[in-house]
Amino acid sequence: MSAILECSDLSKSYGKNEAVRHLNMTLEDNTMYGLLGPNGAGKTTLLNMITGGIFPTSGVVEASGSRLELGGMPPETCYIREKNLYWRGARVMEILQFASAFHPHWDWPFAEGLLNTFKLDPRKKIRHLSRGMQSLAGNIIGLASRARLTIYDEPMLGLDVLVREKFYSILVEDYANYPRTIVLSTHFIDEIAKIVERVYIMDAGTILLHDDVDHIRDHAHVLTGSSEAVQQFTNDKQVIYSEPYGKGSLSVIYGTLGEKDRVQANQLGLTIEGLALQKFFSYLIEGGRRIE
């Protein structure tokens, strides 16, 4: 696989505030990514930089092998912003026509089908749309553009669970038929956990972890038991979070557990459980430790 976009040592400061700090990220061809982080982690700043909207204070963004210059957009990229800056007086159809002119792989029958599926009236003006409907207008553009790199910033904002599920189904099916690189930046972590292949977890302007979702599922464990037992078991393991409760303690570790570990845990009376991505995310952010 080759990289479609790469950023190295990327930083962005606003005065004294460092929104993004020495960040490295590689987006491969035909992969679906999740970009996760608490509010204020720097996700939108990062996305704005890699799509050429703002220029980094230092560092380099390379798109398809060539360096992104000031004011440049990476080629064949569709960026769906959280706050869409579309002219609010324009009609949905006008926005779609505008987008279609920019994206060589735009699929009109698909776009019209999506308007139908999501019951979005193409004659309506953007400013008359609810927050959810505005998100949908953006999501339809993201899907129909079939751009080689599609980036969604909070695409699920204002959407109810039924619409979100419909969007996920359509997204994965279209991705299966037209492979491309997709980035979903979202707070709906457990919902996208089975949709994306890799995640970047970001906090305070840096990447705490990037890994395959399946790999995380295999590696993230939560241990509970007496404090001494937990201490003894986690001695030689990577602990990302720990918390006492009563006489016992809870510890979240990251790494493979072999048969020997399981036997030891059993002898020590420890309980080992897997972790859903969202819970793992909370522990990781709470612990604030970076995983290499």
């Binding site: 679906m32 189904s169 359509i170 994965v172 099916e173 038929n177 089975k194 949709i195 994306v196 292949e197």
Partner: peptide, 12 residues
């Protein structure tokens, strides 16, 4: 594979 992905909302 595409039906699987769409039905269970999983990555293909």
């Amino acid at each position: 594979m595409a039906q699987f992905a769409s039905t269970f909302q999983i990555n293909p």
